[in-house]
Design a protein around this nucleic acid. Sequence first.
DNA 1: CCGTTGCCCTGCCAGC
DNA 2: TGCTGGCAGGGCAACG
Length: 270
Amino acid sequence: MPELPEVETIARGLRRAIVGAQILAVEVRKPKMAQAPAGLDFSAALRGECIEAVERRAKYVVIALGSGRRLLTSLRMTGRLVVQAPGERDFPATYVVLDLSDGRRLAFADTRTFGRMRLIEPNEAWDAEIGPEPLERAFTGERFGAILAKRRTPIKALLLDQRRVAGIGNIYACESLWLAGIRPSRPAGSLRGPARERLRRSIIDVLERAIEMRGTTVDDYVDAEGLKGGFQNALAVYGRLGEGCLRCGSPIRRTVIAGRGTWWCGQCQR
DNA sequence: CCGTTGCCCTGCCAGC
DNA sequence: TGCTGGCAGGGCAACG
């Protein structure tokens, strides 16, 4: 499930691989997965574009194009964005293929077809509603405090809300709350002082360590080279129902918050 | 405005 | 063995 660390890993891999390449041809095999602004044809608009940069914003891979347009990719749960050598076989469920000038291909595959590519006009403020990047300087204690203040929603639900903080998904929400020793159901606004600062630092720490280990592969995730991540071996709570807490030994519990499975330690998360 | 619920979609797996 | 139902979940729409 690509979240911030996985998307960051993919974006870094793509940056090395495809910046400077030109898009020669585009094949869309499932039209709903390749969206363009009104009046534009996705394939025709991309044909001939140069790839100038690859960035990440929240859980989106952002490919900056010569025209000033941008190609966004949202991988959702099972999406893959992989660079393939000439003649290499398709991944299963490959739905959009960009043929590059050097013969390689950028393939977008997704078994569950929840993922999307979306072409964005140069001046479109597509990320106006998305919250601050937790690994940037602007994610200060003061800013985090303002985001949590007076919110009665469970802190776990708030962390998953991309309008509040960018890039955190279910795995890293669970892991950050465990590291900070905070119960996932706690009202966001009840976190103040040291607990709130512990959570902010835990979010940053967990995301940075996960990026170092090239993300978490639970089942599907692979990076731009098709390689699995390593952080699944460092998970403290996610998916560990009934196993011992790494801090206190009591069994990890599972509940549902905001419609998502939530793993946590009833003993040391308060 | 705010917060919650349901839907999209397929693969996997426990249970019968 | 083969089927079925439940679960996995990011982002969005609909609802109260």
